[in-house]
């Protein structure tokens, strides 16, 4: 009896050790979870969630510090995707952090710009070009529409305009024939 107990114990211990080693070696670590969450976030870097960018918010979600419904640019679809990834129940978007809006880009009214560079320092993705006492301009293709440049501007010369969207072929109108019984 003793040898069989010994063999079984040995087997159990070695299998557990193997599983532990494999999970350490190849298993999901914190970083890869953060990566996956970050991939679902819209990368607007708008800080509306309360964290200074998408990556910090992803880290906060991964550590359980932040909830999944704090990202207005991602909208309800983003919340659902996060819930799906993390195996949680989806919930409505938290309106405290802002509401979901169609995509916009910043546009500087170049006649009113005084060249103070405050917006350049605020831009999280370096999408504003300019220098001291020189007119500034927004690179529309790089702008994420985060609105962070609006508040620092002392002369209110930055507007948000709808982002240029590619044309989408309209959904066919359904003119279904209903067969009368």
């Amino acid at each position: 009896m003793i040898p069989s107990v010994l063999i079984l114990t040995l087997l159990t211990v070695s299998v557990v050790a193997l599983i532990l080693w494999v999970s350490r070696r190849w298993g999901a670590n914190d970083d890869s979870v953060v990566e996956q969450i970050d991939a679902l976030l819209p990368q607007t870097q708008c800080a509306q969630c309360g964290y200074p960018g998408c990556r910090p918010y992803a880290e906060a979600i991964a550590s359980g510090e932040a909830d999944i419904n704090q990202c207005p640019p991602g909208g309800q679809a983003g919340v659902d995707a996060l819930a799906d990834l993390l195996g949680k129940e989806s919930k409505p978007l938290n309106e405290e952090h802002g509401s979901h809006k169609p995509p916009v880009v910043a546009l500087i009214d170049e006649d009113r710009c005084i060249g103070c560079t405050l917006c350049i320092q605020a831009c999280p993705v370096d999408a504003i070009l300019g220098a001291q006492k020189m007119m500034h301009t927004v690179l529309a293709s790089e702008c994420t529409g985060c609105e962070l440049c609006i508040a620092p501007c002392p002369v209110d010369c930055i507007d948000l305009v709808p982002a240029q969207r590619p044309m989408i072929h309209p959904k066919p109108m359904s003119i279904d024939i209903r067969v009368q019984a």
Binding site: T44, R55, D126
Partner: peptide, 13 residues
Amino acid sequence: RQALAKERFEARN
């Protein structure tokens, strides 16, 4: 666009 924004954000940080 997202990938570009992420790259630029990280580069800036």
